[in-house]
């Protein structure tokens, strides 16, 4: 498939200009995750002090869950907000009449997702280590495939969000923030899948992030790295990736047919 890194680079340059011109944009990347971290951090401390004897050491998985969830969320946001940025500034048509392949456009939004995740992750891991003695790096080398899988799933959810906004217009903008939270209750971020009602468990197990959060808790509890869980997560990601690409392409075809692409771009 033809693909140009120069084109992706040019699209990313636009966001580099945006973020360096408006440093206030970084506040959004740092402020909310920090607030979250403080809540879960202090809850963890409280539980460690007050909770029953069985709890202590491994209860830090709440902080780990929060940070890893944020990786997924920021990655999804990178994709969806980049698209919205083009809608808000009425720039979408300029991009769509430029020699930009759809895959290059999507790749650029994914790359912006990676950059956003990078900023948030550095801040969160730093503060968690200083304030709560929680060291994400203690997870070891397995942290990398954990992060990679969450990032991938974030991209795919971002593509689904973007496709929905293209189709339903600015009225559906809030989906950019809502889509990840639709799945959060099922994603086993802060509790194991086993606490979910039995009929919900298969749905939870079809999300690529679920085995990652389960795996993180296992490793924090001192169990060996569940490589088979990772393989399972990656396989699910391949399926989700294919479905998200199909969904995105189908919606793009639909909005080109109905004229909604132009509408969302010029409203």
């Amino acid at each position: 498939m033809p693909f140009s890194c120069n084109t992706v680079g040019a699209l990313v340059l636009r966001y580099v200009f945006l973020y360096t011109r408006h440093p206030v944009r970084f506040v959004e990347l740092i402020f909310w995750p920090l607030v979250d971290l403080l809540v879960w951090g202090f809850l963890t401390i409280y539980l460690q002090k007050q909770g029953p004897a069985g709890l202590p050491s491994t209860i830090t998985f709440l902080i780990g869950g929060m940070i890893l969830w944020d990786v997924l969320f920021r990655s999804q946001q990178g994709v969806a907000i980049s698209f919205l940025e083009d809608v808000w500034t009425r720039n979408l048509l300029n991009v769509f009449v430029a020699p930009v392949r759809t895959i290059e456009y999507v790749a650029a939004t994914c790359l912006v997702g990676v950059l956003r995740v990078g900023v948030t992750l550095i801040v969160l891991t730093g503060v968690a280590a200083l304030a709560y003695h929680f060291h994400l790096a203690d997870l070891g080398i397995v942290l990398l495939p954990f992060l990679a899988n969450l990032m991938l799933f974030g991209w795919f959810l971002g593509m689904v969000s973007t496709a929905l906004i293209m189709r339903w217009g600015q009225a559906a903008e809030s989906l950019a923030w809502a889509v990840p939270f639709f799945i959060q209750p099922l994603a086993a971020v802060f509790y194991p899948v086993s606490v979910l009602p039995v009929w919900l468990q298969p749905i939870a197990n079809s999300l690529p992030c679920t085995p990652i959060f389960e795996g993180m808790r296992a490793v924090l509890a001192g169990h060996p790295v569940p490589w088979h869980q990772l393989g399972y997560a990656f396989t699910l990601n391949l399926v989700w990736g294919a479905l998200a690409a199909w969904f995105f392409a189908a919606n793009l075809r639909y909005v080109r047919k109905t004229g909604l692409l132009v509408k969302v771009a010029t409203q």
């Binding site: 084109t7 699209l11 200009f17 500034t89 048509l93 991009v95």
Partner: peptide, 27 residues
């Protein structure tokens, strides 16, 4: 290329930044 009264370049960038981005997109 195309221009219309109904589109604009990203409002939050400087003129030279926008032109630079599109110059690269068009190689």
């Amino acid at each position: 290329n195309f221009s219309s009264a109904y589109t604009s370049l990203p409002s939050n960038l400087l003129v030279w930044q926008n032109l630079t981005v599109f110059a690269r997109l068009y190689r």
